[in-house]
Design a protein around this nucleic acid. Structure first.
Length: 478
RNA sequence: CGGGGUGUGGCGAAGCUUGGUAUCGCGCUUGGUUCGGGUCCAAGAGGCCUCGGGUUCGAAUCCCGACACUCCGACCA
């Protein structure tokens, strides 16, 4: 049978998007399951993507004066309980350490679900004077949240992330920094991951427990569901008061500083998969791809071919690219399929016929477009093609986002559009939480954000018909 | 947490109704062959049938329980 399955296949995303996603995660060797529900193993190829994200993002953090620290894994229960809204939000999904060796502990310790409380305890110690501010800390670590359902990258019980925590002398400075970090995330998503985002503010219902304001970047996946890719919170001085963090200002007054926190996680990798992937597997943004270029020698047993391929590899590596030469004895077809499944952005084919002519062939992952280049122009051509791959990925994702933002004026209309098309639905909203619950009940959508770029679509709320001054985006979220 | 589905070498499956020596394809190893889109041939290795109880002379198969995966809900700062 011609269509008999000879090798592992990826389910088509049109057939079953969830299964497609799981197939890609497993078959591109990004992740593996462990023996505990919701706790995943990041395999080398998946972890390498995270390392690349870390490297690039960490440089951006440092540009705005952020320093890295490492805080403890465990939070004593009394510490966690100091800020009321915060503990209420996290208590249901905390995991606890109750034994030390064979002894029951006097006080149980929570395995950090996030580290605001630890940072606050420390800030109370180290902040004395206005000269100590601003204080901008970040840590790269894992956190634990006992989720009921889990999916690779999108919802783990343990996941890798970074959490930034900053303290500022004035509310305005803290607010500005909250927004600045949201923009760092947004720019990163667009320029590095080729993922267009919608920037906006979370409603009170959706904001972080204990925050005064939460800002978010929302992305649209290929199945038109929303993914919250990063958040940045303004805390005001709420935590500072709860944890008794004070400094002496220039007028010799004891006052509370103003605080922010912000984070992104390995969920970004889930976003990459669902934004760019296709039915042949993963498609990786060139800037974070563990292998940016794979060199496939054709008929490598023939004299000179392998040597030529090795030379190309050396040249590309010297040019600063992450390059792999596959000189295994698998067939060409096998190798092509393999590296497509793993999302390698660019392939270089070199065989005897090319080498005779002093050329090789570059093939883009995104559209399989082939470009013949002269060997002496290889480096320049590769950089150019990688840039084209990035641009192509961004344009395609942007089109998907733009084409699936719909406008609605009534609840019924919103529900119908959601059922028909999915995507983001923009409406006017009165600001009432009851209307958010209504939208969830009727149309199955939660509010995604109140976008910074506001449009005037009308004067009344989509849910209750009362006067409304804000435009809001709704969607089904991961 | 509620409802459905699933669990058999590394992967995908058959076998279970009607209990009786563990099957197939892919992958893996070795040798040869091929190489511009998942080559072909031959020989070989590999399995506490998810786990724990029970029924039975005998359990992958029947019964009870647990765990995990998965889908749909609820929940998810």
């Amino acid at each position: 049978m011609a269509n008999e399955k000879k090798v592992e296949q990826i389910t088509d995303m049109e057939v079953d998007f969830a299964q497609w996603f799981t197939d890609v995660c497993k078959k591109a060797q990004l992740i593996d399951y462990s023996s505990i529900k919701g706790v995943f193993i990041y395999r080398p190829y998946g972890y390498a993507i995270w390392e690349n994200i870390q490297n690039i993002m960490d440089k951006e953090f440092k540009k705005v004066g952020v320093e890295n620290v490492y805080m403890p894994l465990l939070i004593p229960e009394n510490l966690l309980q100091k800020e009321k809204d915060h503990v209420e939000g996290f208590a249901p999904e905390c995991a606890w350490v109750t034994m030390g060796g064979s002894e029951k502990l006097e006080e149980r310790y929570c395995i950090r679900p996030t580290s605001e409380t630890l940072f606050c305890e420390h800030f109370a110690q180290v902040i004395q004077s206005h000269r100590d501010l601003p204080l901008k800390y970040n840590q790269w670590c894992s956190v634990l949240r006992w989720e009921k359902t889990s999916r690779p990258f999108l919802r783990h019980r343990e996941f890798l992330w970074q959490e930034g925590h900053t303290m500022h002398a004035t509310a305005q400075e803290a607010r500005d920094f909250t927004e600045q970090m949201l923009n760092v995330y947004a720019d990163f998503c667009e320029n590095v991951l080729a993922m267009p985002v919608t920037r906006g503010r979370k409603t009170d219902k959706e904001k972080f427990n204990g925050a005064e304001a939460t800002y978010t970047i929302e992305c649209m996946m290929h199945d038109r569901k929303a993914l919250q890719a990063g958040t940045s919170h303004y805390f005001g001085d709420g935590f500072a008061k709860a944890f008794d963090i004070t400094y002496t200002d220039k007028n010799n007054q004891r006052v509370n500083p103003h605080q922010t926190s912000w984070g992104v996680s390995t969920r970004l990798i889930g976003g990459i998969i669902m934004t760019h992937g296709d039915n042949n597997g993963l498609v990786l943004p060139p800037k974070v791809a563990p292998i940016q270029v794979v060199i496939l020698p054709v008929a490598q047993h023939k004299p000179g071919v392998l040597e030529a391929a090795q030379e190309l590899r050396a040249r590309l590596a010297a040019a600063g690219l992450r390059v792999k030469l596959d000189d295994s004895d698998n067939s060409m077809g096998w190798k092509c399929a393999e590296y497509e499944m793993k999302g390698v952005p660019l392939r270089v084919e070199c065989g005897p016929r090319d080498l005779e002519k002093g050329q090789c062939v570059l093939v883009r992952r995104t559209d399989r477009e082939k470009v013949v280049v002269k060997l002496e122009e290889l480096e320049a051509a590769v950089f150019q093609q990688l840039e084209l791959v990035h641009q192509g990925m961004y344009q395609r994702a942007k089109k998907n986002l733009d084409e699936h933002i719909y406008e609605a004026h009534t609840l019924e209309e919103a529900k119908a559009i959601q059922e028909e098309n999915g995507g983001f639905i923009k409406t006017m909203w009165c600001g009432d939480e009851a209307c958010e619950r209504k939208m969830k009940e009727v149309a199955g959508m939660s509010s995604r954000c109140v976008p910074f770029n506001q449009e005037h679509l009308g004067d009344t709320c989509v849910c209750c018909g009362k006067p409304a001054g804000k435009m809001i985006y709704w969607g089904v979220a991961y």
